[in-house]
Design a protein around this nucleic acid. Structure first.
Length: 310
DNA sequence: CCATAATCCTGTACGC
DNA sequence: TGCGTACAGGATTATG
């Protein structure tokens, strides 16, 4: 499942292979992948044909292409993309443009006969035109951003842990002010973006913190350890091209990532903890799962007394 | 403010 | 072998 390291790998692939290449056609199979695209398929085609991507930008799990539409057309729109659970962006050469792929949703044909394909099995991903608006904090919007503009659909997404403009110490203080479980906070893209179920579980194991621990009961050291561990594990995953846990994630050339072999808890239910040898357990969490070492990550006792009376 | 559930999907894995 | 069911998950929305 694409989280920050996987999406960043894709962003780098787009930056390397798509920038400057003119779009000559848009082919959409159905409207579902375009459900968040302003104006639908017709408008997408109108704006994209003749345009050249000029930058590939990412914030959290969102990525977008800025569009160069010529000197007389302002850059007021971006092509915003989210991979969802199974989305892939594949750069095709002229010789490898297989139009029969069962999960091909959108193809952008490029001037030299190649294409950028959006392929998505489970259809939670989407792409489409989105208006660019000034970033509320006035700072460059994300990784690869040339200016302080953001797609409207990204304004509510927090900066991510690999963003040099993120103040991690301040974020740790805010984490300790939240009255929720620490894993819920990590997964809240309005609080910090880019972390999904895999890296949340990995980060909490590295930090030795149970996912249900109340964020406001973390010590300052623990709060910083959790965010530091999330940062570090995503950096290491990025160096391996990300995690291809279920085989659905590949980069723009179709290659999987190799971080799965470095996962400490995710998908390792029943296996020995790499630190203490105890069996990893899987716990229900928000209609999915958390993976923890029951010895390294001590479960919190239930908070006594409930909410304080007013 | 916070939590839960439902919603969108499809391939895979399982029990019977 | 086949058939039904559960599960995987991110973001959004509705509801409590």
């Amino acid at each position: 499942m694409p989280e920050l390291p996987e999406v960043e790998t894709v962003r780098a692939g787009l930056a390397a292979h798509v920038l400057g290449r003119t779009v000559v056609g848009v082919e959409a199979r159905g409207e579902r992948a375009l459900r968040r695209s302003a104006g639908g398929g017709a408008e997408l085609e109108r704006v994209l044909v003749g345009a050249r991507p000029s930058a590939a930008v990412r914030r959290g799990k969102y990525l977008w292409l800025l569009l160069d539409r010529g000197a007389n057309t302002p850059e007021d729109a971006a092509l915003l993309m989210h991979l969802g659970m199974s989305g892939q962006l594949l750069v095709r050469g002229a010789a490898s443009c297989d139009p029969q792929h069962p999960h091909l949703r959108v193809r952008l044909r490029l001037a030299d006969g190649g294409a950028l394909d959006f392929v998505d099995q489970r259809t939670f991903g989407h792409l489409g035109l989105d208006r660019l608006v000034p970033a509320p904090d006035g700072l460059p919007g994300g990784h690869g951003a040339p200016d302080a503009m953001l797609p409207e659909g990204v304004v509510h997404i927090a900066r991510d842990l690999l963003d040099p403009r993120l103040d991690r110490a301040a974020l740790a203080r805010r984490l300790r002010a939240r009255r929720t479980g620490v894993k819920r906070a990590l997964l809240d893209q309005r609080f910090v973006s880019g972390v999904g179920n895999i890296y949340a579980d990995e980060a909490l194991w590295h930090a030795g913190v149970h996912p249900e621990r109340s964020a406001d009961r973390l010590t300052p050291t623990q709060a910083e350890a959790v965010l530091g561990a999330a940062h570090d594990v995503m950096v290491r995953a990025l160096a391996q091209g990300g995690t291809s846990f279920d085989g659905l994630y590949v980069d723009t050339t179709g290659r999987p990532g190799y971080f799965e072999r470095s996962l400490a808890v995710y998908g390792r239910e029943g296996d020995a903890c790499l630190r203490c040898g105890a069996a990893i357990v899987r716990l229900p969490f928000a209609s999915r799962s958390s993976h923890v070492c029951p010895r390294c990550q001590v479960a919190p006792r239930r908070r006594a007394g409930g909410r304080a009376p007013r």
